[in-house]
Amino acid sequence: MGISRLDALLPDMAVFVRVVDCGSFSAAARQLGLTPSAVSRMVSRLERALDLRLIERSTRQLRLSEAGEGAYQRCVAMVTAAREVVEQAESAHEAPRGLLRVSMPKAFGRRVVHPLMAEFLQRYPEVNVQLMLIDRMLNPVGDEVDLMIQATDQPPPTMVARRLMPVRQVVCASPAYLARYGLPQHPLELAGHDCLYLGEVAGDARWSFRRGDESVSVTVSGRYVCNHSEVRLEGVLNGLGIACLPDFIAADALARGEVIEVLPGWQYVGAYQGTAWLLSLPGSRLTPKSRVFIDYLIEKLRP
């Protein structure tokens, strides 16, 4: 294959990566500002040039062929290398500048990061920030995210992880509720209380606890279920029951005595706790805008 023909295929390879990352031609087209038919033609042109079937198409989903898997990995490396060129060019400027896109869980972004943004934007007047508040992990390449924050025991091994702050889940209730219905002394007693829980999947009503070598799980129930932690906190303040909340959501109410921690001798075992990690792609030089944002959050949040 001639050099000129190869050069012509580079945009098609980048579009192929975007289609795979997005999971559909239409989603990739929306991100790229193209029509789905144009995206499909570019992938088909790449398949003809390589004489390979890269994607198995069906009405419901796209699936990479065996040849497509290998091609995708190499095309991702190409896109990553191109991104590094841009990042290196940005790094040539002394002052941090440009748009910084950072994804994080909704509650963490609203309660922890958002209050810090006014000072950051004042410090770095040439940096614009887009906070992407979403409770699922994004694809840093396909979704064009510079940095991500995730609360977990173990950060993804494929990412460079920087520790920000500990995160734990706190079981709590209002003094009025506990005065009326009693303070649980054991996790199994939660089955007899009104509990406010996430309610997105069946397992959200199954709360697990650990104390030393003892582990116990209990299925909770209640009249009010909501997948927003701040709403659940308001429900607790209104005496609607017992909730399990991230400590950064409950901290102020706990300090003011508006809510009381329930079962303090037990450790809640579940997702969305451990450590808040700031994640970036490995093998690429951090841009000045990313570097100053990382340093700023570590300055403000690390104990």
Rank of each mutant, 00 (worst) to 15 (best):
I294W: 00
V79R: 11
F209M: 07
V19I: 11
V160F: 04
I294Y: 02
Y124H: 15
Y181L: 02
L9S: 11
A276M: 05
Y177A: 09
A49S: 15
G257Q: 07
K289M: 01
V19L: 06
Y296M: 05
V269L: 12
C195V: 15
V218S: 10
M42A: 09
V86H: 01
I298C: 13
L133W: 04
Q154E: 14
N238A: 10
A95I: 02
L286P: 05
V76W: 10
K106Q: 12
L64A: 04
R168S: 14
V262Q: 05
Y296D: 05
G212V: 13
A205G: 15
A8W: 06
E69H: 06
V20K: 04
R291D: 13
P156N: 14
V269H: 02
M165C: 15
L254D: 12
A81Q: 14
L281D: 08
D153L: 13
D295F: 07
T287W: 01
R211C: 13
L52I: 01
T80V: 15
A67L: 07
M137G: 13
V259T: 12
V231Y: 02
Y224W: 14
D194S: 15
S217Q: 11
Q150F: 03
P105F: 01
L196P: 00
V127E: 07
P96T: 00
S217G: 10
P96E: 04
M132S: 02
V20P: 00
